[in-house]
């Protein structure tokens, strides 16, 4: 499926249209040479900066290396350490919490907001810009803004809480609240893309079903959950996968900038842990093993989701 407005192509089997000028063998050779020349730069880049890093990362997992002295082959030591390292398990748990705490509200809120702005009321295109704006703030920009918002005394967040009589926590210095604080900030940054994707999904839902529902006298709220929500299910699935990956990657960036994994490791995700092992401890081998483990896990989860969907489809 696709949510883009340009026509979708099944890339795994997609073949170019035959334009085949009928000039025979010579032209075929010219075609082959030109095509090779055209794809070579991309392939070199791909091999050098995608394939080699992947294989190199795999190879390095079996070495101990500090970037200075020659690497030493250590066999499975790094892999064994991986499974016996309490910091790794803790970081893995933190990563899972980031994803769970982040993805569900992002998807639900994104869906509701998309339904809200999916209208042709005058002026809507201008108003929608505000919905999309958080998307263009980089992690660094967002962190500067939210660090100020979360300031225990001078920040707007605790100020707003004090209006309703709540004494707000010292967000980023608090073992309970640091993680939710980062999650809230990441939800803010992730909502625009979710809204955009849902808008695409909603526009493909036929108006006829609503007309039918209105005749039935279904309430707006019931209509939303019993008709709209199931109809955008493919979008929901896509958004969920994209956001799960997005929160794994995004939490790394913001916790590196704002809390450096603290306090007491409550915001130290697996990616950040690998980063620290690589660049603070300069233990490249173990860091490679950690990165690899994370990719394998992520891949396994994505495959699992696809499998579940296929099973669901088969039985429905």
């Amino acid at each position: 499926m696709t949510t883009s407005t340009t026509p979708a192509v099944d890339v795994t089997t997609g073949r170019p249209e035959k334009t085949a000028p009928s000039a025979g063998r010579r032209s075929k050779r010219v075609d082959a040479i030109t095509a090779t020349a055209f794809v070579t730069p991309a392939l070199i880049g791909f091999i050098l900066f995608v394939i080699i890093p992947a294989l190199g990362g795999l190879a390095l997992s079996f070495f101990q290396w500090d970037l200075f002295s020659p690497p030493q082959f250590v066999g499975l030591d790094n892999i064994v350490r991986l499974f016996t390292d309490p910091d790794m398990w803790h970081a893995l748990g933190v990563t899972a919490l980031f994803v769970i705490m982040g993805v569900i509200p992002t998807v639900v809120l994104g869906f509701l907001l998309a339904v809200l702005v999916n209208t042709k009321l005058p002026g809507i295109s201008v108003l929608r810009v505000f919905y999309f704006a958080p998307m263009i703030a980089s992690a660094a920009v967002a962190s500067v803004i939210w660090a100020a918002l979360y300031d225990p005394r001078f920040g707007l967040v605790n100020q707003a809480l004090s209006w309703v009589g709540i004494n707000g926590p010292a967000w980023l210095s608090d073992t309970t609240w640091a993680r939710p604080a980062l999650v809230i900030m990441m939800i803010w940054g992730a909502l625009p893309i979710v809204i955009i994707l849902y808008l695409g999904g909603l526009q493909r839902v036929s108006d006829d079903i609503y007309a039918a529902a209105s005749l039935d006298g279904a309430g707006a709220w019931r209509q939303l959950w019993s008709m709209t929500w199931p109809n955008v299910w493919p979008t929901t699935l896509l958004v969920t996968v994209l956001q799960a990956v997005g929160f794994v990657s995004g939490s790394f960036e913001v916790s590196l900038i704002m809390t450096n994994g603290g306090p007491l490791g409550t915001t130290q995700s697996l990616a950040l842990y690998a980063y620290k092992v690589a660049f603070s401890d300069r233990d490249i081998g173990y860091a490679s093993a950690l990165s690899l483990f994370q990719l394998v896990l992520l891949g396994a989860i994505v495959l699992l989701v696809r499998l579940l969907v296929r099973i669901r489809k088969a039985y429905s």
């Binding site: 091999i47 394939i51 080699i52 294989l55 190199g56 190879a59 390095l60 070495f63 290396w65 970037l67 200075f68 002295s69 020659p70 690497p71």
Partner: peptide, 19 residues
Amino acid sequence: WVAALAVAAIIPMLAACAG
């Protein structure tokens, strides 16, 4: 082949990188 070559290329590259 590409995979084998890449692995073969990486090990000496690593070894060559002593300070």
